[in-house]
Design a protein around this nucleic acid. Structure first.
Lengths: 113, 113
DNA sequence: TGTACTACTGACAAATAAGTTACTTTTGCA
DNA sequence: TGCAAAAGTAACTTATTTGTCAGTAGTACA
């Protein structure tokens, strides 16, 4: 079967859908964006993002880590200190996210406050 | 307040999150992708995408239309004939979607069948 | 002994998204 | 008379995501 004769395929096979599963979700882009400037601690990320609960942050960090986008570093201290940073794979997303952001600002009317 | 001093902001203000709301969703990328080659009829889109229900297609087309990504053209015939095509805004997404697709193929292990 | 610090986790509820099945509309054709 | 075509919609059910609230662990300090 030649490439251009294929059906577009089911959602599970669509690379774009897969990518959006990884970087999509209500808070993930904001989390990634915040890590561009360097590693951050859990509480620091939480404080920087208004309205996101601890539970959700914890979950999304875990997802991002298991997808290889971010790296979790735990220093065995007490009280605990854990830092999150972008992996190479995560950094490779920055350009795409920037174009997505530009496109969005040009084409989507942001909600007015 | 200077740009780089801002908090990353709530999800509703994040341009990337907004963009993903528009092109995300289980089937939207596939729908958009399928329209790149030209206008398609409702039933044609449905037949081309395995596993997506009519209901969901109908809803996503409506969303994409109201976000200005696609254009719905109804020819007043019986039986009905309706065509969907990419708008300028929709076409402006193609490059971004291609880079997302490339990134995905390079960085996400696709589910093995 | 009691409280603070930090980074979580568990049980559960609420909100969204996706999926299923049956039904509608209008006109031509057998 | 009654079915076929095409493009949907209505009423639900199910699944997935988010969000809430309380609780845990280990050490320092008053």
């Amino acid at each position: 079967m030649k490439e251009n004769e294929k059906k577009y395929g089911a959602a599970e096979e669509c690379p774009i859908t897969l990518a959006i599963q990884v970087i999509g979700g209500k808070w993930k882009p904001i989390i990634i964006w915040g890590l561009i400037s360097g590693p951050k601690r859990f509480g620091e990320i939480h404080r920087n993002i208004a309205g996101m609960s601890l539970k959700v942050l914890s979950r999304q960090l875990k997802d991002l880590e298991s997808d290889g986008i971010i790296i979790r570093t735990s220093y065995g201290e007490v009280p605990p200190r854990v830092e999150y940073s972008l992996s190479g794979k995560g950094k490779s997303l920055i350009l795409i996210m920037e174009s997505l952001s530009t496109w969005s600002k040009e084409n989507i009317k942001q909600a007015t406050a």
